[in-house]
Design a binder for these strands. Structure first.
Lengths: 208, 208
DNA sequence: CTTTTATGAATGAAGG
DNA sequence: CCTTCATTCATAAAAG
């Protein structure tokens, strides 16, 4: 039993830091050390990205990439140029920008997207890629349904214990993935990690 | 965005074991939402890095930028060392017993597994290993879809059932040449999200 | 260790 | 709105 827990010894290796308490088993919480590891990794990524972006801009000082869209992996010029309806992506895929806007709107007026609003949003998103009102409509419907399912699927709260874990009222997923779109922007603010990874200063705000 | 409270690593191990204790101290667990956010965040960084490194290599093939040398020294050491230790399990894997039960149920009521039925099945399978309703739901969905595809892929050479054109989608992806412009086109294939953040399957131990 | 496969999970779209 | 389907993505497991 517990086949899923049977991990190869390669992956089950102990961390170099000592484990922090030495529980011996994997729990769902992140210890300080794990948090630090995560933070370091993200910091590493941020550093790499900054350096590479800088280098990239230096190299491409003559070639402007602003006109190229990163998120457009499906409708890239390959298909539109010479391709002859080989595969044709039937399914709309929101670009990172569109997704960002959609999530923002979703966060604002939780649910109940008016038909008129749909039109506006569609027009707005049209500036960032091909999209239709149906897409927007479906997206909101799915988003809402998905959020609700997530709620009931993640009760994570323990029985009678009055868990005060999060005083969050909004359970819906507030994922705002910083899409790589900003890569081409000059405001390469790669320190987005602080939005999810609390530092020593920003921590302990809920402590009673 | 919610703030997390820093909690000593010693208390971390008590999270999973505890439960009904109405102590008053609450551990800081990462919810599925948070985990997903983190995972996506890092995946974004990884994607950026991958793209930029690729671009960088393409560009440096003609220009000597040895001075910069931000090619590969950064990623490996930290990532490979500390990443895998956090990763417990990323994907639910049904135990043979669970699989057997699932297949039996699938054979009985082909398709249309009601939500209520899902709960029952989940409870049933919980006796044989960790599992969640989502897992059961996905399993049935995949099972059904796969069966249907199997049939149309291998028509039991029955009667005049004409095998319609199988819209094979084997294209795109790496179709593009090494042109650096493809950097932003379809380099999304890289699966760097495996670095540290597991895909939480929202498994809870609520019973009854 | 690398590549391939099998399959769990995510998501856009359709039906009711 | 809620449920269901179809397609695609990502990853554990298997094959080499």
């Amino acid at each position: 039993m517990m086949e899923w827990e049977k991990q190869p010894p390669q992956q089950a290796e102990e961390l170099n830091g000592g484990g922090g308490g030495g529980g011996g088993m994997f729990v769902k919480v992140m210890t300080d050390e794990q948090m630090e590891v995560l933070r370091k990794q993200i910091a590493v990524y941020a550093t790499i990205c900054e350096q590479l972006v800088d280098l990239h801009k230096s190299l491409t000082s003559q070639n402007d990439f602003s006109g190229v869209r990163l998120g457009n992996l499906y409708c890239d010029p390959l298909i539109t140029s010479g391709a002859h309806k080989i595969t044709g992506r039937q399914r709309w895929t929101p670009t990172p920008i569109q997704l960002q806007i959609l999530e923002r709107i979703f966060d604002q007026g939780n649910g109940t997207p008016s038909k008129q609003k749909i039109k506006e949003i569609t027009t707005e998103l049209s500036q960032h890629g091909q999209i239709s009102e149906t897409n927007v409509y479906n997206w909101f419907q799915n988003r809402r349904a998905r959020s609700k399912r997530k709620q009931q699927a993640t009760p994570a709260n323990n029985g009678e214990s009055e868990v005060e874990t999060e005083a969050e009222s909004s359970n819906e997923k507030k994922t705002k993935p910083d899409e790589f779109q900003n890569l081409q922007s000059n405001s390469m603010d790669l320190h987005k990690s602080e939005s999810i990874l609390p530092t020593e200063d920003s921590s302990s705000k809920l402590s009673g």
